[in-house]
Each structure stands twice: as structure tokens, then as C-alpha cells.
Design a protein around this nucleic acid. Structure first.
Lengths: 191, 191
DNA sequence: CGGACCATGTAAGCGGTTACATGATTCT
DNA sequence: AGAATCATGTAACCGCTTACATGGTCCG
């Protein structure tokens, strides 16, 4: 149910075609709310049908393009969601589930699970750090558009919250890596 | 797809009736893989149909009870899962999604989101700490049954991995709380 | 001319959520 | 007698995954 809010969040940075949405989604808000194209396009249509977004057709050198933007009611829905209580997903964590029963795994396989865990979060860590660097040096196109025509205070707010979100992810990655590394030691100790 | 492995994990501690499974699930493996009764009972039937678990009917003072236990093929499936690569869920994190766009929220609502986040993880922290305490003082019935008839080395392994899993969750809770608290400061600073 | 990128999806299926439903037994 | 716990689900729905599909355009 948050997909539409993720899409609205993206569209508050400016009008975009469906394709731009799908690409920019991956490189920005998709880091906190993943969605494949096969979900994005149908959801956009539903949102259009419900009047949350609108497409404006603009003539282009060849063909024409449809630029989506949030409607007033879309912005209102987004703000209402921002002010509503959060709905958390229930805990479902395959890595910790498995770790709790490592006595049933081959020690080598248990080690592999933890090494995969470390790899995964190191990869994510790099991606998230890149996002933070882009926020800091202004090289994110979505954010740059979002900051256009804003005063210094608003810019600080907008960038500050993006940075804050990614810092949280980074801290999580560090915690996961540290945990998995402790686990490697534990396996050696116990097997 | 991990539900069945969570159920098998639970059943490796000893035979149980459906009802015992559903209760004990909540208080043990359910902490890392949540599932409601409405999912557990049908899944058990499917697993029975596929020969992963078997129920033994035992006469009781009044009526009779069906005690489920994993079959050899169930244990093999569980071990195979333990040794297979993990499948991670894609990132979908409503709290971080929202935090990244706090400039669209009323500052009071943003604060409330973060305070809810802190509450949630403090509650979870308490639950997880209780689990760790129960592991340490032997007061977890599921774990106690699991340790029956095992030698000291095996006991250390079984308890050690359970503890390790919960420690990871605890560290995560701490990180989430610290993050949200930083966020409260940030909101004050920026608004 | 061929490969990367632009552009936009459909369809089947499943895992999970939510709401609802029922009746027996044990405890106070 | 009434509440809590035992005991076991069904049904509708939906968000999401996976696999597949198609054709245009730009660049080297």
C-alpha cells in the first residue's frame, strides 16, 4: 500500500514520463521501497484512474510524451499519509531465522550464509554511501530538480531528511555486518 | 516460502499438537518469522499432504490428540534449506521511506512517527531481551525440550545460536532507536 | 547493422492479511 | 455462570513476484 506514496514522493520532484519514473524510482526512493516495473506501470494507471496523478501530453520532436504529475488530491493524499500512523511490516527475517537454527546446518554452509549476509550488506552499504555522497555534492538529478527554486532553509530541510534516511540504512548495514562477523567467530568456537 | 521451514524448525524440538504449534510458534520462532494461525493451520495440512510432517494420534483422558512431528523427508528438506542460499526480501521500509520526505509532513506528525518508531523498537527490545534471559536461565519450554538428552557441547551450540539470533535483533533495535532519536534532534534543528 | 537504451506493459500464481466463525473445556 | 483458554480453521482479497512480451530509437 506504500507503493503509491513512494510514487507520489518521487513525483513531488517534478513531472516525469512513465519511463523516467521507473528509472528514477530505482535510483532514489526505490532504495527504501523496492518495486519492479511490472508493479509501477499498473499502479500509475490506477492512480491516474483515482485522480491522484495526471498526465500532460507534450509534443516532442518525434512523437509526443506524457508527463505525469501529482494532482492536488494526490498531494493531499500524500500529506495525509505522511501525517498518519505508520504501518510496519511484521517481522520476517530469513537470515535471523536461519541463524537461530545453525546447529542444523553444515558449519561450512552456516559460514556461507553469514558471508553472504556480509556481502549483501556491504553492497548495500556502498550504494547507500553513494546516495549520501550525491546528496552532499549535489550530483543527484532527482534531488537537484527537487531543490530548484527553493531557499537555503528549505534546501537544508529537504537534503537533511534524505541524508538522515540513508544514514539510518547505513547504520543498519553496519550492525548487520558486525552481527554476521560475530557469528563467524561463534561458529568457529562452537564447531 | 520460509514459513514451512520455520514450522519445521519448531517441530525439531519435539512432537506437538496443532494448537501447541500455533502458541509456541508465537513465542519462539515467530519472533523472526511472524505468521498468524490462519496461515499456520493450512500450511501444516499442506506439509502433511507433501509428507514433510506426520501426525500421530494418541489417546487422551478425554478425546484424542494429533501430535505432529517432522518426517525423515521433512528433516531432509529442513537441512537442505539450511544449506541453501538465503533469499532476502527486497527493501521495503515504510519508516525510512517516510523519513526521507519529512519536509512534507507536519513537524509534529514527523516527531510522532519517530516516537512511534522508538516505542515499537523499545517494545521489541524488551521482548527480545526476555527471550535472551529465558535462554540464559533455561526457562523457555521450547528450548528446554530441545535440549533434553543432549550433551554439554550440543547444548552450548543450540543455545548459542538462539542467543546469537536474538542478539542481532537487539542490536538492530538499538540502532533503530538511536536513529529515530537523532531524527528528533534533526526535526528541531530544521523546523 | 547490431546492441544498448527507450518505453510499456500482461498474466499467472502465491504468499500473506484481515475478518470472520465455531464449539469444547478448564478455571474462578 | 461466565471468562479464559483450548482447538481449528474458512473466505475474500490484495500486493507482490516471476516470467514473458513487444517494438521503437539512438549510437557507434
Amino acid at each position: 500500500m506504500s507503493l503509491r506514496y513512494a510514487l507520489l514522493a518521487l513525483l513531488t520532484s517534478g513531472p516525469m514520463t512513465g519511463y523516467e519514473i521507473s528509472r528514477r524510482f530505482q535510483s532514489s526512493v526505490g532504495h527504501v521501497w523496492h518495486a519492479p516495473d511490472s508493479q509501477i506501470y499498473p499502479e500509475l494507471r490506477k492512480m491516474e484512474a483515482e485522480g491522484l496523478v495526471e498526465a500532460e501530453t507534450v509534443a516532442e520532436p518525434r512523437g509526443e510524451k506524457r508527463f505525469y504529475h501529482p494532482t492536488d488530491s494526490g498531494l493531499a493524499a500524500f500529506r495525509a499519509w505522511m501525517d498518519s500512523p505508520l504501518r510496519y511490516a511484521l517481522d520476517r527475517d530469513p537470515a535471523h531465522l536461519r541463524a537461530a537454527y545453525f546447529e542444523w546446518a553444515d558449519p561450512a554452509a552456516a559460514r556461507r550464509s553469514l558471508l553472504d549476509h556480509i556481502d549483501r550488506f556491504e553492497d548495500l552499504r556502498v550504494q547507500w554511501q553513494e546516495q549520501i555522497d550525491q546528496i552532499d555534492d549535489g550530483s543527484s538529478p532527482v534531488l537537484a530538480r527537487r531543490l530548484e527554486g527553493k531557499d537555503a532553509d528549505e534546501r537544508r530541510r529537504v537534503s537533511g531528511y534524505k541524508r538522515f534516511a540513508y544514514e539510518g540504512l547505513l547504520a543498519r548495514a553496519d550492525a548487520e555486518i558486525a552481527w554476521a562477523q560475530r557469528g563467524l567467530g561463534l561458529i568457529d568456537e562452537l564447531s
